[in-house]
Design a protein around this nucleic acid. Structure first.
Length: 962
RNA sequence: GGGCGGUUAGCUCAGCUGGCUAGAGCGCCUGCUUGACUUGCAGGAGGCCACAGGUUCGAGUCCUGUACCGCCCACCA
């Protein structure tokens, strides 16, 4: 083995050996629990950037960890055709200003050619990062299976009346003669002007002073608006004024949109040429009058006076700002103007027919609920409203209720499993139902009853209840513990994948807690529920909760919100839930059509008379039919990604059955609503299930000072370059450790080199291990150091597993780093030199490699092979040891302290004087705390004990030193 | 304009449900080191946790306000 680890010499070989093993291919017939991630598809024509690198690192860690903890993992790769971006890149590539310079088919061919060439490059880049992807299932947003999915969902939406064609505002580029997407509009601050005009009243010599930046649109005015809080509003509302030059009469209306601070607080409303005015127009039912044509010249119609017709909008403006009886003045004004990013001409807002999705329109869902829940039947004590310590048997009415419920279920539901709490009443109810349905009942302790607040013999006042209060009669659980327990039960329940419905029988307080859990509630809600329960009589007891099987009406917007609100989809970090809801609250109809060439054509076919004749998946249309020339927007096909990649619309496809819903969606937080929210929306709509249960959002990768990386600032880092320089492991670690979820990820060479050093440290530890010669095959800890490190390994590996279970990758990485470097290398290896135990060392080091493998797969794989292991490391299970030796830990820690003390003493005798000073300070602080009566009274006893112990220790230490 | 974050050592940041005698990496200072590792080892200096109030026995942690900084969305007649 070389003295230093050479990543370039080994990474490619290791990647190749992984691929050759075929172990990346997921088995859809496996009996193991699945874990699925679909890779957010990078743009084919793009380059791999650090955001991708972070995404790949995080997802790869999740995948490897799940694989090593016994899951059938599927990490599904793919690429995105990213229509708009590709079109523009191809145009540039061909040196064209507009795609119209080429035949449509020719242009598409170029796009395809370009994308194919670029594809291999991005795939190569992805593989460089060590990503454990199942390439046998690679998908592309623009291939045939995805096209099928797009057509299918379009048809469904259309049939449900959720898709419609109507007039909407679009960005029109006069220069490019094309509709632009929002992303293609570049806003620039421009020195423009505010033009003041007189709008005379119909019935007097007086006028309203109206301010505009675009006077040429005035012929399309259909109202003048005032703010409802404007003092003039009452008087003027409903009166009429005349449009300058043309004299057309328009009403004065009131609208909140008018800013009282701006200009003269008098707004001319032009619904056909301004997006805001369009909205006001919709609200007030105003006419939309087009006065500027698609060629950028004034229209020839009755609304435009003769002398302005056919003029360009600039010429028209010049004419309008010449002195006249209407024109008042012009003043300078800075404002943002949209430009076409291709032709650099001003964007004209225009009205044109567009396809859009009605997110607020109701439709029927008939997806059956999988869980249903019921209370246990009535007992004598519940009937008599008596608080009771022991549970008593169901009374006759209770049994009858249970039978009724069973009948209802057998008629209306397909219950295949019954889960009950362990307590008598619930179990009895469950058994009655189970017998009549022929199902064996299961008991889950998570749903055990907790008679909150009713400790036998005592009464707790509702307003005195706190979340941490121990409250249940028998087990002494706190409210928090109960809440957490129920939550755990719910999480467990949600993961159940068995066919059919699951019936849960539990107790009232548990079911209402469950309601709060399901609604994503917090502790205040639990307390409130508790208080209500306390102050209410026990009158609820004994009824069984009706299970409804109604067809419900809902909207796409509601579906999307509910998935998160109910806790079916969790967003990490939580702060983004707020962002998510805010977006949904403001969600309007989603415009889905674009005039681009490189994308899914809208699957609507017209006959010659332009009557719609067919919608959806038409494979062999009649040759006289024409397809709608608009294209679906980019996010439309991306929104289907989590299921279109698994065989949907064929819901019986083996992949779909086994791997859907996916588990985690990991992506940058900036596309939370562009993409994530839309996936949730469409998945809930198309499959009835959310597409994933966890959304993990990583932050923006910035330079080491937290600045955005950009070409112009020259602070960009090319991932492949740093991989070459420091190794993929180092790059992965630096993107993942020392970061907080959702926060920016600062990255610089010094950070990466730090983790390169760590990788090298691991390499050298391996070198040391290899120099030892194992004798027997019994890896038993013998020395104190052996026992200490073994015990510590158990603790640390448990912690790391916990962190990774919760997707706390940074924490896990930090712990591995310090365990390997501080505990294993600096202490254990050094100590083991005195009392070598090669067998144990070999064993332990192998375990460490497994532990570290998800985070740094290359170096661990390389060392694994160096140590003579044949199979690939990912096939091993994640370490799970239970060796614990508390005594050894304490002893060794004491030893460590002593060593450190003597080292200190060696270097400097003054670093002692300081310590005495510090100790004295500490002692007085501790003494003050212990003298505080409030502290002694109110602080937990454990803590007081600890303080006392600390004081004693500090005093002893002080004595020793002086 | 709407929304969401951040403000802790020279730099970049951790610090979960309040118990901290405030941590990490890098940088800095002083030594050491030819058997795993100079991509190393040992030790050290360095913080009124943005500011002002409040709740509490106890606040970096919770609440209110102020001031900066950042991000996302919308786009101003």
């Amino acid at each position: 083995m070389e003295k230093n680890y050479d990543h370039n010499a080994s990474e490619n070989k290791i990647s190749a050996s992984w691929e050759a093993s075929g172990a990346m291919k997921a088995d859809n017939k496996s009996k193991k629990k699945k874990f699925t991630i679909s890779l957010p598809p990078p743009n084919v024509t793009g380059e791999l950037h650090l955001g991708h690198a972070a995404m790949l690192a995080i997802e790869d860690i999740m995948i490897r960890f799940k694989k090593m903890t016994g899951h059938e993992v599927l990490w599904l790769p793919g690429t995105d055709h990213a229509a708009i971006a590709t079109e523009n890149v191809v145009l540039k590539h061909l040196g064209l200003k507009s795609r119209e310079e080429m035949q449509r088919n020719e242009f598409l061919k170029e796009c395809r050619k370009f994308a194919t060439a670029k594809h291999d490059r991005i795939v190569h880049q992805i593989k460089k990062m060590g990503a454990w992807l199942d390439w046998s299932r690679e998908a592309y947003t623009f291939d045939e299976p995805r096209n099928q999915a797009v057509n299918t969902i379009f048809k469904r939406l259309y049939d449900d009346g959720l898709i419609s064609r109507g007039h909407r505002m679009i960005n029109w580029s006069v220069g490019a003669q094309s509709v632009l997407s929002d992303e293609e509009v570049v806003y620039k601050e421009v020195k423009g002007a505010l033009y003041h005009y007189k709008y005379f009243f119909v019935d007097s010599e007086e006028f309203l002073e109206v301010v505009t930046t675009r006077p040429e649109t005035m012929f399309g005015d259909t109202a003048v608006a005032l703010n409802p809080h404007d003092p003039r509003a009452k008087k003027l509302h409903g009166k009429k004024v005349k449009v300058p030059f043309s004299g057309r009469e328009i009403p004065i209306i009131l609208d909140d949109h008018v800013d009282l601070e701006f200009g003269t607080a008098t707004l001319k409303v032009t619904p056909a040429h301004d997006p805001n005015d369009f909205e006001i127009g919709e609200k007030h039912n105003l006419e939309k009058i087009q006065v500027i044509g698609f060629d950028g010249h004034m229209e020839t119609n009755d609304h435009v006076p003769k002398k302005f017709q056919k003029l360009s909008s600039e010429e028209c403006r010049k004419l309008l700002t010449k002195p006249s009886e209407w024109f008042i003045k012009k003043e300078e004004h800075l404002h943002n103007v949209g430009f076409c990013y291709r032709s650099h001409t001003v964007v004209e807002p225009m009205i044109s027919p567009q396809w859009f999705i009605l997110v607020d329109k109701e439709f029927e869902t008939n997806k059956p609920q999988r869980f249903l829940f019921a209370r246990h039947g009535e007992t004598t004590s519940t009937k008599n409203r008596v608080v009771q310590g022991e549970s008593d048997p169901l009374n006759i009415k209770g049994k009858a209720d249970a039978k009724k419920l069973a009948e209802f279920l057998s008629r209306n539901k397909n219950v295949t499993r019954i889960i009950s709490s362990e307590h008598k009443r619930a179990k009895q109810t469950a058994e009655i139902i189970g017998r009549s349905l022929g199902i064996k009942i299961e008991t889950w302790k998570e749903f055990n009853g907790a008679d909150l607040g009713s400790v036998v013999g005592k009464k707790i006042l509702p307003n005195k209840i706190s979340f941490d209060m121990a409250i249940e009669a028998k087990t002494g659980e706190t409210m928090k513990q109960i809440f957490d327990r129920v939550k755990k039960g719910w999480e467990k329940l949600k993961k159940e994948t068995s066919e059919g419905d699951i019936l849960v029988i539990s107790h009232r307080s548990i079911l209402s807690t469950l309601e709060i859990v399901r609604s994503g509630g917090d502790k205040n809600q639990v307390l409130e529920q508790r208080r209500q329960h306390e102050s209410a009589s026990f009158g609820y007891w004994g009824e069984t909760t009706e299970i409804s099987d109604k067809k419900e009406k809902t909207t796409l917007k509601k579906l999307t919100a509910e998935a998160v609100r109910s806790g079916d989809v969790k967003i990490i970090p939580k702060q983004f839930e707020k962002v998510y809801f805010h977006w949904i609250d403001n969600l309007r109809d989603w415009c889905i059509s674009r005039q681009i060439w490189w994308g899914h054509r809208i699957p609507v076919w017209y006959d010659k008379e332009k009557n719609i004749t067919a919608v959806g998946d038409i494979k062999t249309p009649h040759k006289d039919w024409t397809q709608d020339k608009d294209t679906l927007d980019t996010w439309f096909s991306s929104a289907l990604w989590p299921f279109s990649t698994l065989g949907w619309p064929d819901e019986k496809a083996e992949d779909f059955q086994k791997f859907f819903p996916t588990d985690v969606l990991e992506t940058g937080h900036d596309i939370l609503f562009f993409w994530v929210a839309r996936m949730i929306m469409f998945s809930k709509y198309a499959t009835g299930k959310p597409p994933f249960h966890t959304v993990y959002l990583h932050g923006l990768v910035t330079d080491e000072h937290g600045k955005k990386m950009s070409k112009s600032a020259g602070n960009g880092i090319d991932p492949l370059e740093v991989v070459e320089k420091f190794g993929a492991d180092a790059v992965r670690l630096s993107l993942v450790v020392g970061t907080a979820t959702g926060q920016p990820i600062p990255l610089g060479a010094s950070k990466i080199s730090g983790y390169r050093n760590f990788v090298n440290k691991l390499w050298n530890a391996g070198r040391f291990v290899k120099m030892q010669t194992p004798t027997s095959k019994k890896p038993e800890p013998k020395s104190l150091a052996d026992k200490w490190i073994a015990s510590r390994f158990t603790k640390i590996s448990k912690e790391i597993k916990n962190h990774l279970d919760k997707y706390e990758i940074s924490m896990a990485g930090d712990k591995i780093y310090h365990f390997v470097w501080d505990d294993f290398c600096d202490w254990y290896i050094e100590e083991s030199k005195k009392e070598p135990n090669p067998d144990f060392l070999y064993y332990l080091f192998n375990e460490i490699l497994k532990l570290a493998h998800p985070l740094c797969p290359f170096i661990t794989e390389k060392l694994w092979q160096e140590l003579g292991n044949k199979d690939i490391l990912i096939g091993e299970s994640f370490p799970e040891t239970n060796y614990v030796d508390k005594k050894a830990e304490d002893l060794f820690e004491k030893f460590q302290k002593e060593v450190i003390e003597t080292r200190k003493a060696k270097t400097d005798k003054t670093a002692i004087e300081k310590e005495i000073k510090q100790l004295k300070k500490d002692i007085s602080a501790l003494e003050i705390r212990l003298k505080n009566k409030g502290y002694l009274k109110k602080a937990p006893a454990k803590l007081v004990e600890q303080t006392k112990k600390e004081l004693k220790e500090s005093k002893e230490k002080l004595q020793k030193l002086s």
